[in-house]
Write a protein that binds this DNA or RNA. Structure first.
Length: 277
DNA sequence: GCCCAGGTATAAA
DNA sequence: TTTATACATGGG
């Protein structure tokens, strides 16, 4: 990945498999929003503004070191999405269309704790409200670093009562957030140990957290631990599978099944008519 | 008022 | 093991 420092910014050439709106708006992350054509948000403990301008992607107010140490990793620029997306071609017409339209999605390397918490909040909820709750969580309880509030650490949330979380309007999920915070901050569940385990084992441990079932656990593996074979299966995704891959299971898509899932999910949500019953 | 939202816990069949 | 229902909240 080549990048250039231009003034205060970092610039890269546009990539075949990188589209900002697909990446930020596909439902994998919740803290970026589009403002005046630029995506602005907070991740990995920092504020970021990033946008496309003709043939360039601009990372605003980012130093060379900062780009190398944080954002190169966050956007997963070392993974070859061109090769992976091409490997999904030729399965059927829907998969071809999903690759054509959605292969600008990259699976961000997000913070595991933030991801776990975010997808606990996502249950039986819609994306605008998920964003609203996470925003309230951060601005109420996250450290103020000047230009943004960080995602609150598990140690901070572990000691709170459900009442203390009332202002974020998470509803019945508040107790789940607290349980997750306690299990992570106490070390009962350790992300570093989960990384060394097979998918199924890691998933079963995550599901010991109240409010974490198969779906949230898979989202956590895929988006929070970058396990690209994890395949989150919600009701919508089941419908997509039943209709267009009736005799297939997630394993069919191989070691990058999670990426195939994300392409199909985003594509199908953008074309609900094709997928209606 | 009713329905739904990137689900899960719980009880019951 | 599978199926039904409640769950907090807010927008349509």
């Amino acid at each position: 990945m080549e990048f250039k420092q231009i003034g205060r910014n970092i610039e890269i050439n546009i990539l075949k498999n990188f589209d900002l709106s697909q990446t930020f708006d596909c439902g994998q992350c919740f803290r970026f929003q589009k403002l005046n054509g630029k995506y602005q948000g907070t991740a990995l403990g920092q504020n970021l503004t990033v946008y496309q301008e003709s043939e360039k992607i601009i990372f605003e107010n980012v130093s060379s070191d900062n780009f190398k140490n944080i954002w190169l990793d966050y956007f997963d620029f070392d993974t070859d999405y061109e090769k992976i997306s091409e490997s999904f071609l030729g399965i059927n017409s829907v998969m071809d269309a999903a690759v054509k339209e959605c292969s600008g999605i990259r699976i961000l390397r997000q913070d595991p704790w933030e991801t776990l918490c975010s997808f606990i909040i996502s249950q039986n909820n819609n994306i605008p409200r998920i964003k609203k709750i996470i925003n309230a969580l951060c601005s109420n309880l996250g450290d103020d670093v000047g230009d943004t509030h960080l995602f609150p650490k598990p140690q901070k949330l572990a000691n709170l009562s459900e009442d203390a979380l009332a202002p974020i309007r998470a509803g019945f999920r508040a107790k789940y957030i607290i349980d997750a915070a306690q299990k992570i901050s106490s070390g009962v569940i350790d992300f570093e140990k989960l990384k060394k385990m097979p998918d199924d084992e890691a998933k079963n441990i995550l599901m010991q957290i109240k409010g974490v079932g198969t779906k949230v656990a898979d989202c956590m593996l895929l988006y929070g631990m970058h396990r690209l074979s994890a395949f989150p299966m919600d009701v919508w995704m089941k419908r997509v599978m039943d209709k267009f891959f009736p005799d297939k299971s997630p394993g069919f898509f191989g070691e990058y099944a999670g990426i195939a899932q994300q392409y199909l999910y985003h594509y199908s949500r953008s074309h609900p008519k094709i997928f209606g019953d």
